[in-house]
């Protein structure tokens, strides 16, 4: 396996594992919450990167998979009494299935049209769930507190969910690496650079794009279940927040799209920055504006993101920063 000898992969995994282990050392629940948010962002950004960074398709509504997965999982947990594990898998499966269906349709659209369509899909899904009584309509669903007893009580359950989140994040990074360094991934990169030329060279673009979309949707679906299980309730407004979708894009861009390490660093950096702005009395109120300003500077002056910029500037680093 070439993967095992890749310093780039180990670097990304080690950084994530180290950050993820930190709450275990301190044993602090508030540290754990901070780390959970960071891991969640890393995993979401890395999943999105498979579509956005490798394939070059801008999904503005990617959060639809997270929301739908979350809804599916919470429904199964609270109404059908299945285990968390099964719920997480079901969340991933329903998200993957939706992506497969969408892949056959909206992935035919290119550029801005695709981006617009993904926004439409997210809004339609939100509006639909809002009316869908089995999922609680506008009120959503709340988990019965006693459900946590199956997992040794609320406190234990939260640590367990954290552990699963950490494992899932490491898995996403591994998958992201394996995709990028596979033949499939080479086809995706070719599509990103020039879809017409790629097809002429024999890349079966419709199929490759669809699988990239499915892959980038499954993990958000699973993560949605974990998040809303931890959260205890789910509402349409929380589950399909377009804003979170766009934050995912910002994280990928910040770190460097199309690289394995980029979304990891980008997501962690973005969340740290946000955390800092939120506690600072001066920036608390305008943290969104500061984040916007930062994004603008990156888009205008460092479009390749931090890792991409380094790779271009310092070719020797290309072996380490994948």
């Amino acid at each position: 396996m070439r993967a095992l000898r890749s310093p780039g992969l180990w670097l990304a995994l080690a950084l994530t594992a180290a950050a993820g282990a930190w709450p275990y050392f301190t044993g602090s629940a508030s540290n754990r919450e901070v780390a959970f948010t960071i891991l969640l962002s890393v995993a979401l950004a890395s999943s999105l990167n498979i579509l956005l960074g490798y394939t070059g398709y801008v999904s503005f509504g990617h959060i639809v998979f997270y929301g739908l997965g979350g809804y599916m999982g919470i429904y199964l947990l609270s109404e059908r009494g299945v285990s968390l594990w099964l719920a997480v898998l079901a969340g991933g499966a329903i998200a993957g299935l939706l992506a497969l269906l969408l892949g056959a349709s909206i992935l035919r659209l290119r550029g801005a049209y695709f981006a617009l369509a993904t926004i439409g899909v997210n809004e339609a899904a939100r509006a639909f769930i809002n009316n869908f009584q089995p999922f609680g309509g506008p009120i959503g669903m709340t988990l019965n507190f006693r459900l946590y007893d199956h997992y040794g009580g609320a406190a234990r359950a939260l640590w367990m969910v954290y552990g699963v989140m950490l494992g899932l994040t490491l898995l996403v990074i591994l998958v992201s690496y394996l995709v990028k360094n596979s033949k499939f991934g080479l086809g995706l990169l070719a599509i990103r650079e020039n879809e017409d030329a790629a097809e002429i060279m024999g890349v079966t673009a419709p199929q490759a794009k669809t699988w990239a979309y499915v892959l980038s949707a499954i993990f958000p679906g699973m993560i949605g279940v974990l998040f809303f299980f931890k959260n205890g309730n789910i509402e349409p407004h929380d589950a399909f927040r377009l804003h979170l979708s766009i934050e995912m894009i910002v994280m990928v861009m910040l770190g460097g799209y199309g690289t394995v390490l980029g979304p990891v660093l980008g997501a962690a950096g973005y969340q740290r920055l946000r955390g800092m702005l939120l506690v600072s009395p001066i920036f608390k109120n305008i943290q969104l504006a500061v984040a916007g300003g930062l994004l603008l500077i990156i888009v205008l002056f460092v479009p390749a993101g931090a890792v991409g910029w380094l790779r271009h500037r310092v070719p020797v680093l290309r072996k380490v920063l994948e």
Binding site: G187, L189, A190, E193, A198
Partner: peptide, 17 residues
């Protein structure tokens, strides 16, 4: 050309697909 890929990778696309 697939600009952001290396020359080798460009040619590998041809061979792979």
């Amino acid at each position: 050309p697939l600009n952001e890929l290396t020359v080798r990778e460009n040619v590998m696309v041809g061979a792979c697909f």
